[in-house]
Simulated assay, not measured.
Amino acid sequence: MDKEKTLSAFEAVMPAFGIFQDKKRQQLMTELCCKGELTVNELTATTSLSRPAVSHHLKLMLDAGVIKVEQVGVERRYSPNLEPVIKKLKDLTAALEE
């Protein structure tokens, strides 16, 4: 096992692990994965969270790179962005299995 490669792989995936420690963000991601694209208002309607709370969690998730946003007219539509996270998890798994 290449220790440096493994530590680097852990470091790369930690933002995603950290962001999903929160149950509310897990719930928001589940909604996004099930429905594809949603606005803040649509997400607020599917949870018990306030609109400001949903916006706060979405900002953290955007910063961690696990979701993406697209401006469509006056709406901002949020969707999962899991491909980079999955690649990092695969890299970590490969490093651990070496």
Results as ranks from 00 to 15, higher is better:
residue 1 M to L: 11
residue 1 M to Q: 12
residue 1 M to I: 10
residue 4 E to L: 12
residue 4 E to M: 07
residue 7 L to Y: 09
residue 7 L to G: 03
residue 9 A to N: 03
residue 10 F to T: 03
residue 11 E to Q: 13
residue 11 E to L: 08
residue 11 E to F: 08
residue 11 E to K: 14
residue 11 E to M: 05
residue 12 A to Q: 12
residue 12 A to T: 13
residue 13 V to T: 07
residue 13 V to Y: 09
residue 14 M to W: 05
residue 14 M to K: 09
residue 15 P to L: 01
residue 15 P to Q: 02
residue 16 A to M: 04
residue 16 A to K: 01
residue 16 A to Q: 01
residue 17 F to P: 00
residue 17 F to C: 04
residue 17 F to W: 05
residue 18 G to K: 05
residue 19 I to C: 04
residue 21 Q to T: 12
residue 21 Q to P: 00
residue 22 D to W: 06
residue 22 D to Y: 05
residue 23 K to A: 09
residue 24 K to F: 03
residue 24 K to D: 13
residue 26 Q to D: 02
residue 26 Q to T: 07
residue 27 Q to G: 02
residue 28 L to C: 04
residue 28 L to T: 05
residue 29 M to L: 15
residue 30 T to P: 00
residue 30 T to Y: 13
residue 31 E to H: 15
residue 34 C to P: 00
residue 34 C to S: 14
residue 35 K to A: 12
residue 35 K to F: 15
residue 37 E to A: 11
residue 37 E to K: 14
residue 37 E to C: 03
residue 38 L to H: 06
residue 38 L to V: 05
residue 38 L to P: 04
residue 39 T to W: 07
residue 40 V to F: 02
residue 40 V to Q: 11
residue 40 V to H: 01
residue 41 N to H: 11
residue 42 E to G: 13
residue 42 E to F: 06
residue 43 L to V: 09
residue 44 T to R: 13
residue 44 T to P: 01
residue 46 T to Y: 12
residue 47 T to A: 07
residue 49 L to H: 06
residue 49 L to T: 08
residue 50 S to A: 10
residue 50 S to E: 11
residue 51 R to L: 03
residue 52 P to F: 06
residue 52 P to M: 02
residue 52 P to T: 03
residue 52 P to N: 03
residue 52 P to A: 03
residue 53 A to V: 06
residue 54 V to F: 05
residue 55 S to D: 12
residue 55 S to N: 12
residue 56 H to I: 00
residue 58 L to H: 03
residue 58 L to K: 03
residue 58 L to V: 03
residue 59 K to R: 14
residue 60 L to A: 05
residue 61 M to I: 07
residue 61 M to P: 03
residue 62 L to Q: 09
residue 62 L to W: 00
residue 62 L to Y: 00
residue 63 D to S: 10
residue 63 D to Q: 13
residue 63 D to E: 15
residue 64 A to F: 06
residue 64 A to Q: 07
residue 64 A to C: 09
residue 65 G to S: 10
residue 66 V to L: 06
residue 66 V to K: 08
residue 67 I to V: 15
residue 68 K to M: 08
residue 68 K to S: 10
residue 68 K to Q: 13
residue 69 V to H: 04
residue 69 V to M: 10
residue 69 V to P: 00
residue 69 V to A: 15
residue 70 E to F: 05
residue 71 Q to E: 15
residue 71 Q to L: 13
residue 71 Q to M: 12
residue 73 G to P: 14
residue 73 G to E: 14
residue 74 V to M: 14
residue 76 R to Q: 14
residue 77 R to H: 11
residue 77 R to A: 04
residue 78 Y to G: 01
residue 78 Y to S: 00
residue 79 S to G: 10
residue 79 S to Q: 11
residue 80 P to W: 08
residue 80 P to Q: 07
residue 82 L to V: 14
residue 83 E to R: 14
residue 83 E to N: 12
residue 83 E to F: 10
residue 84 P to R: 09
residue 84 P to E: 10
residue 85 V to P: 03
residue 86 I to A: 11
residue 86 I to T: 12
residue 87 K to N: 10
residue 88 K to P: 01
residue 88 K to W: 04
residue 88 K to C: 02
residue 89 L to N: 05
residue 90 K to H: 10
residue 90 K to G: 00
residue 90 K to P: 00
residue 90 K to T: 12
residue 91 D to I: 01
residue 92 L to Y: 06
residue 92 L to T: 08
residue 93 T to I: 10
residue 93 T to K: 14
residue 94 A to C: 04
residue 94 A to E: 15
residue 96 L to E: 06
residue 97 E to G: 01
residue 98 E to T: 11
residue 98 E to I: 02
